[in-house]
Amino acid sequence: MTELIRAAVLNSAPGKLDIERLTLAAPAADEVRVRIAYAGLCHSDLHEMDGTFPTEVPILLGHEASGVVEEVGAHVLGIEPGDHVVTCLSVFCGRCRYCTAGRPTLCENRSALSQGPNPRRLVNTAGVSVRPTAGIGAFAEQCVVHQNALAVIPSSMPLAQASILGCAVTTGYGAVVHRAQVPPGATVAVIGTGGIGIAAIQAARVCGAASIIAVDVVDGKLARAAACGASATVNARVDDPVEVVRQLTGGGVDFAFEAVGNARTVAQSVAMLAPGGTATVVGMVPANPPIEVDGSDLIFTEKTLQGCFMGSNRFRTDIHSFVSMYEQNRLDLDGMISSTVAFEDINAGFAEMASGDGTRTLVAIGADA
């Protein structure tokens, strides 16, 4: 049976979101219908809204969310109506060469699973299909997603804090633990202290890093980074971050994480490395301008520049670890949430994000879920 839901749709890009009514199809085989409680606002959504990344409209954005299962389709295993869940855009098939090798974020079938079997899963009042981003479309009262885009969480876990697990925490934490594999005693720099950067800082702290240097241009965000585990902070609007990081560490860090999505800060992440160090790009970097890195710096000092998609996660097991760490006060999720806005104020939430002041903004869609 179809459902009539409210959703925040991007109908033009650049543009703002329009709250309108959509028809949502019932879940097909392997799919689950979720009533959304909270959704996190991510910079990748903003980049589609402001035209930084081209997109086809109409599109229903939103991929980081928590909610309660309403209905399951045939062949769904381990997920039942009433379960509390979080979404993650790195849906996986579990059968391809990457999934079976333990690298599900590189799943060869992710696009097909995201698209789903029903091309008219979401339809607006004009009869036009609306594409759900990453096969999720979380800026809506309900969504229908593939079962492998969900992780079940304990009902005791607050849904507000849980909503940021599937992207911000998964991406930042996983970049440190899974992709870079930071060992105890290492020196670390994190450029960009939004939600993903703060998650990376906390991961470095849990890994036992000897020093963690946070780099940003907003003093308030740097203060939050210090509260979450950064041992030193650098305001890149005031000081040269490469110079300061090299001074603080006596020659550079072992690991640098770029969580801004900017070609210039990627180059800085490499420049602030010690010989043999590794820079990991976590932010969504546009194609233009291109990233420019000194090739001789890579060769003669054996530095490494690598990318990381969604924290190279194994999100169904990762998220359970995050919940446990939150319950043990080892992972600060409360401090990562800078504000919560009503569904009707979602554009104001994105305006706050664009200003650069917040860490992670939530939109309360069905907060009584």
Rank of each mutant, 00 (worst) to 15 (best):
P286M: 01
T317D: 02
V130P: 01
P27W: 02
C207Q: 13
F257I: 03
V206M: 05
M1L: 06
E352D: 12
A364F: 02
Y173E: 03
H63S: 10
F309M: 14
I5V: 13
P104M: 04
S12L: 12
F322A: 02
A267F: 00
V34E: 15
R224E: 14
P154M: 12
A25N: 11
N288L: 03
S155Y: 10
H320W: 01
V323W: 07
V285N: 00
I198M: 13
G127S: 11
H43G: 11
V32I: 11
G251T: 12
A259T: 07
G172E: 09
V281N: 02
G261L: 03
M1F: 07
P275S: 08
A168S: 09
L46T: 02
H178F: 00
H146D: 15
R224F: 10
H43C: 09
T280F: 13
A287M: 10
P104T: 03
M310E: 00
R237H: 06
L60E: 10
V238W: 01
S129I: 01
T105E: 03
P132L: 01
D18P: 02
S211I: 06
A223L: 10
A126Y: 08
A151F: 06
C207W: 11
A267H: 02
A223D: 14
L248N: 03
P132R: 12
V341K: 14
D83L: 04
A134K: 02
M353L: 09
F139H: 14
A214E: 00
E70F: 05
V32D: 01
T55D: 13
A189E: 15
V215E: 04
T23L: 08
D332P: 07
G166V: 06
T193R: 13
N235S: 04
H178E: 09
D357P: 07
P289H: 00
G78M: 01
C96Y: 01
I164M: 03
F300I: 11
V32H: 02
I365Q: 15
G208T: 03
K221P: 10
E344D: 14
D254G: 12
V244A: 01
M336D: 01
T280G: 11
V244W: 00
D368P: 08
R97I: 10
I365G: 15
T359Y: 06
D318A: 04
A13E: 14
E20D: 14
I291L: 00
T340F: 13
N288M: 01
G116L: 08
A138V: 05
F92K: 05
V206P: 00
R179S: 06
Y38Q: 06
T133D: 10
E258C: 09
H320C: 07
R314L: 10
G358T: 14
S114H: 09
V182C: 10
